[in-house]
Computed example of a mutant assay.
Amino acid sequence: MNYTLHQLKIFLEISESKSVTKTAEKLFLTQPAVSIQLKNFQDQFSIPLTEIVGRKLFVTDFGMEIAEAAKKIIEEVHAINYKTLAHQGKLAGILKISIASTGKYVMPYFLSGFMREHEGVDLVMDVTNKTKVVRSLELNEVDFALVSVVPKTLDVFSIELMDNQLFLIGSKSNKTFKKKDFEKLPLIYREEGSATRNTMEQVVSENNYPVRKKMELTSNEAVKQAVIAGLGFSIMPLIGLKNELHNHELDIIPLKGLPIVTKWQLIWLKSKKLSPTAVAYLEFLKTNKSKIINENFAWINQYSSQK
Rank of each mutant, 00 (worst) to 15 (best):
T102P: 10
Q302M: 11
E191D: 07
I94G: 03
I252F: 01
L266Q: 08
E119K: 06
E244N: 13
L137Y: 09
E68R: 05
K213G: 11
E65T: 03
D61H: 15
V127Q: 15
L166R: 09
G103I: 00
I267N: 08
D163T: 14
A278T: 04
A70I: 01
A195W: 02
S219Q: 11
I14A: 04
K256M: 07
N81W: 09
V53T: 15
K83I: 01
N243F: 11
I36Y: 14
L258K: 03
V227D: 10
Y281Q: 02
L8I: 09
M125W: 01
M115A: 10
L91S: 03
L95S: 02
I36L: 15
K273F: 15
W268N: 00
V142W: 07
L91C: 06
F167E: 01
I99W: 13
K72I: 06
D43H: 05
V77I: 00
K224W: 05
F110P: 04
L161G: 03
F177C: 01
V142P: 04
K175L: 15
E117R: 09
I74E: 01
T50I: 06
E206D: 12
G103K: 04
S148F: 08
D43K: 02
T60A: 11
K96V: 09
E16Q: 10
T60N: 10
W264H: 06
G240S: 02
G93Q: 06
V211D: 11
L161K: 04
V204R: 06
D122G: 06
L269P: 02
F28N: 15
S271Q: 05
